[in-house]
């Protein structure tokens, strides 16, 4: 990477973060629920773009597919069961705003002693990562290091995640299936 392109990426990062903040404020401000759904899709596309500029391409994949794709569809499904506009709340939003500000400042305080982005001496780069990077070509024989870590070095972890997702899928199908059957029986009567 040349110095110029690094500078360009940083500028793009800052602008993307600015757009993210604008989108978040608009989501809180808007009363049209359809607009909120579309804006939350925009929010997750923006964060996916940020992940891409941070070279976390696999995370960006997931964010775009789940956040912008599936959850937009699910939110629209939920929207068809409710009204188009949000009711104006009777109480003021001061307490939630206070909680958000406090939580946000604690989170920002937590980032203060995090090592700088891309720092080669950061703990995460000195623990087992060098072994993975040097060894995966010979030990696992998979060209992509991320794949070899997910599917081999941490194979049991990934298996556990897959089991959890499979269980959730089975549970959802069981619930949806029984609902459909009941409705069909009701129509026949």
């Amino acid at each position: 990477m040349t110095e110029e392109s690094i500078l360009g990426t940083v500028v793009v990062d800052i602008i993307l973060f600015g757009l993210l903040a604008i989108t978040a404020v608009e989501i809180a401000r808007l009363r049209s629920l359809f607009g909120v759904v579309a804006l939350s899709g925009v929010f997750s596309l923006l964060s996916a773009g940020l992940f891409v500029t941070l070279d976390a391409v696999d995370v960006a994949f997931t964010e775009a597919a789940v956040g912008a794709g599936v959850s937009t569809v699910l939110m629209l499904g939920a929207l068809s069961l409710t009204t188009q506009r949000e009711r104006i709340p009777s109480h003021t939003a001061l307490l939630p705003f206070f909680v958000v500000v406090v939580t946000g400042s604690v989170l920002i305080y937590g980032t203060l002693d995090v090592p700088a982005f891309g720092d080669p001496k950061a703990p995460v780069h000195t623990h087992v990562a060098p072994e993975y990077i040097e060894g995966s070509a010979e030990v696992i024989d998979v060209p992509n290091v991320v794949t070899s870590v997910l599917a081999s070095y941490r194979g049991f972890d990934t298996l556990g995640e897959t089991v959890v997702i499979f269980t959730a899928g089975v549970a959802v199908i069981a619930m949806l299936g029984s609902g459909l059957r009941r409705r069909k029986n009701g129509q026949q009567k």
Binding site: E26, L39, V42
Partner: peptide, 14 residues
């Protein structure tokens, strides 16, 4: 990026 900003504004304004 400017296009993105304009799209967000249009999304918010309706």
């Amino acid at each position: 990026l400017v296009t993105m900003l304009l799209a967000i504004i249009r999304l918010a304004l309706g």
